[in-house]
């Protein structure tokens, strides 16, 4: 056999395991999800082709409440970008400039990232427990009994109460990424600015932050797409309740699939999620480019 052919066969063989996994589990299913989204289908019986009806129903039907779920996840995204990320950035800047105990603080602040979301959810369920949870017990002890409430049970407080554990879990992650960026800024540059009379704050504002912009961009994309996809914590804490106050697209999708057997509609929600994630990623990329 010709040497070139053998070489090509070898290339193919090296790629084969990865290709089978990747195409079989990621690429083909996306195409299938797109295909299912045009059908009315209960998962085992006949599929009926209905064109874009699922999409129309998704955005117009109040019974499904997709727009509300989408709104909730966008609210989570906004909270993440405007509360979580600034906090992460602040911590990264403080630790990155070389403070005493830097490594220890970093290690502690990153710890929640490693804990399973189910564990965190269960833990916060206990913290929020109306009668025995440490939050209400604490509020009562310091005389603020009027502030105690059923945090996860009231439509007004449930989404906020879900956001706190999300914040708690992921601040460390974004902090770590930004910290890596801060550490990448050359020490000479910092030194030079300080000799020119810049304060620590000015060094951060005019030298460090502009040079870690690419990382901030990644963090923003992760925070937004992560909020759109959020599932685990919400599922454990409220499963979308009370009265759909914490419903997000993923919990809705799981409901469609496994409670109502609406596989076509479930697929439609999945397709919308993929489109939204890609659209937001592109949008953020664009925004950061123009800003340069």
């Amino acid at each position: 056999m010709n040497k070139k052919v053998v070489y090509s066969i070898n290339i193919f063989l090296f790629l084969l395991p990865a290709l089978i996994l990747f195409v079989g589990v990621l690429i083909a299913p996306i195409a299938m999800s797109g295909y299912y989204s045009f059908f009315d289908w209960n998962g085992f019986g006949e599929k009926t082709f209905i064109g874009f009806e699922n999409y129309k129903e998704l955005f117009s039907s109040n019974a499904i409440g997709f727009t509300k779920a989408l709104g909730n996840s966008l609210l989570l995204a906004a909270l993440s970008v405007f509360i979580q990320l600034p906090l992460s950035l602040g911590l990264a800047l403080l630790l990155g400039r070389g403070i005493k105990g830097e490594r220890a603080f970093l290690a502690i602040f990153f710890m929640p990232v490693l804990i399973s979301t189910v564990v965190i959810g269960q833990l916060w369920l206990k913290i929020y427990n109306p009668s025995y949870g440490i939050l209400n017990v604490f509020l009562t002890k310091i005389g603020l009994e009027s502030l105690t409430r059923i945090w996860l049970g009231l439509p007004e407080t449930a989404l906020g109460a879900c956001f706190v554990p999300i914040l708690w879990q992921y601040v460390g992650y974004h902090m770590l990424l930004m910290y890596a960026g801060v550490k990448g800024v050359s020490p000479e540059l910092r030194e030079a600015a300080k000799i020119d009379g810049a304060t620590n704050w000015q060094v951060s504002r005019y030298i460090v932050i502009p040079s870690i912009k690419p990382i901030v961009k990644v963090s923003v994309i992760f925070a937004i797409t992560g909020s759109l996809k959020s599932f685990d914590l919400i599922y454990v804490l409220t499963n979308g309740g009370p009265l759909h106050a914490t419903e997000v697209p993923s919990t809705l999708m799981i409901n469609m699939l496994f409670l109502r057997n609406r596989y076509g509609m479930g697929s439609t929600i999945a397709v919308m999620l993929i489109i939204l994630c890609f659209a937001f990623a592109l949008l953020i990329n664009r925004l950061f480019k123009e800003d340069r």
Partner: peptide
């Protein structure tokens, strides 16, 4: 092509994989 996998959410494939 493989790097596309970094952005694809697992939701994308849940129905087809389950079926």
């Amino acid at each position: 092509f493989f790097m596309m996998g970094l952005t694809i959410p697992i939701h994308a494939s849940i129905v087809p994989i389950y079926v």
